[in-house]
Computed example of a mutant assay.
Amino acid sequence: MPAIATQGLTRSFGPVTALSQLTVEMPTGVVGLVGANGAGKSTFIKILLGLLPPTSGTATVLGLDCLSDGLKIREVVGYMPESECLPPDVSATEFIVHMARMSGLPTDVARERTADTLRHVGLYEERYRPIGGYSTGMRQRVKLAQALVHDPQLVLLDEPTNGLDPAGRDDMLELIRRISADFGISVVVTSHLLGELERIADHIVSIEAGVLQHSTSTAAATEFSGMMLVEVTDRGPEVVERLHALGAKVTTGAQAHSFVVAIKDEQVLDDVRSVVVDLGVGLIRMQRGRHHLTEMFSTPQEALHG
């Protein structure tokens, strides 16, 4: 059973259509939801949480109908909003205990779960400080903790790395990876930073102006591109000329001694090795290329991971 499934999901606000005939399945694991501001992501999340009815179509979360089972969905789903929404004058412990109790946990269980969750997100030592004195990264961790405290089966994370520096983004991405890998919680994470999603997501869904653009596994989106970067020590133009003569498709760039070769079959690999041996030049690298997720949102091009 998919974590999330929609069929013809549409939501209009007067003359504006936020979602249009969205039919998609999101598997368990980590799913990256991509879309620019105004693409319909926030509307989609509100529908999934049972907070906003669709104009037409259907949506299910963990097999529960979003239109009729909103309360049940919110019992088993955690949500981390993008907006700044934390009370500054209470401690993380007080806030998370309150959120746990609102989720239906008894007070003693709520306190125990709060301590465990704050330890998991790295805030245990700072748990009694007022949230108003927290850094941006710490506040993001508090928002993540309140989404996890009631032990959900699925969490919806809206731009969880927003406002973080590179080190903070790395820490947050590692937390998200652990949520799925170590605790078996499915995750849907929205982000406009495709490199982040490429690192942690098993599946990518992109929407634009409320319309589905792509739904694919990350492995399929980043498969080998059929191109190979070759770098030699010297005599690069001669190597390229020899390869052209052998029928290889070679693309040169600004660097005289590096170029890209199309891999039409395994013979081209032998041709490269033979040419560099015949010319007596050194072969620095032959690197098989992979596609980048960014190619899904731009003009098709060959991409190489460095």
Score class of each variant (00 low, 15 high):
Thr136Phe: 02
Tyr128Ile: 08
Tyr128Val: 03
Pro88Gly: 09
Phe95Lys: 06
Tyr79Gln: 05
Asp108His: 10
Leu148Asp: 06
Arg141Leu: 08
Gly132Glu: 05
Leu51Ile: 15
Glu75Lys: 15
Gln140Met: 12
Leu144Phe: 14
Ala145Met: 01
Arg111Asn: 11
Met138Asp: 00
Leu51Tyr: 14
Ala115Thr: 09
Glu125Lys: 14
Gly104Cys: 10
Gly57Ser: 13
Leu52Glu: 15
Gln140Lys: 11
Val142Ser: 12
His120Thr: 14
Pro87His: 04
Pro130Leu: 10
Ala147Arg: 00
Cys66Trp: 06
Met138Tyr: 01
Pro88Arg: 13
Arg111His: 12
Ile73Val: 09
Pro81Thr: 04
His120Cys: 07
Arg129Ile: 14
Ala100Met: 05
Val76Phe: 06
Thr107Ser: 08
Arg111Cys: 11
Arg74Tyr: 08
Ala110Val: 15
Glu126Arg: 06
Arg113Asp: 00
Asp65Thr: 15
Asp116Met: 06
Met102Arg: 13
Gly104Ala: 10
Ala110Asp: 10
Asp108Thr: 15
Gln146Arg: 03
Ser135Lys: 04
Asp69Ile: 01
Leu52Lys: 05
Tyr124His: 13
Leu144Lys: 07
Pro106Ile: 13
Tyr79Lys: 03
Thr136Tyr: 00
Ser68Asp: 04
Ala100Asp: 00
Ala59His: 02
Pro81Arg: 04
Pro130Cys: 13
Thr58Pro: 02
Leu71Tyr: 15
Gly63Thr: 08
Thr55Trp: 13
Thr107Gln: 05
Lys143Ala: 01
Ala92Asn: 06
Gln140Thr: 08
Cys66Asp: 08
Leu62Trp: 03
Met80Thr: 07
Gly70Lys: 02
Gly57Lys: 13
Thr107Leu: 12
Asp89Met: 03
Phe95Cys: 09
Leu48Glu: 12
Gly122Ile: 07
Val109His: 14
Gln146Tyr: 02
Pro53Val: 09
Thr93Lys: 12
Phe95Leu: 15
Thr136Asp: 02
Met99Leu: 08
Val142Met: 14
Pro87Asp: 11
Glu75Trp: 09
Met99Ile: 11
Leu144Pro: 04
Arg101His: 04
Ala59Lys: 03
Leu123Pro: 00
Thr60Cys: 10
Leu105Ala: 11
Leu67Asp: 04
Cys66Gln: 02
Ile96His: 00
Thr114Asn: 05
Ala100His: 02
Leu105Phe: 13
Ser68Lys: 03
Ser103Asp: 13
Gly63His: 03
Thr136Gly: 09
Ser103Met: 13
Ser68Leu: 09
Val61Ser: 06
Glu84Gly: 06
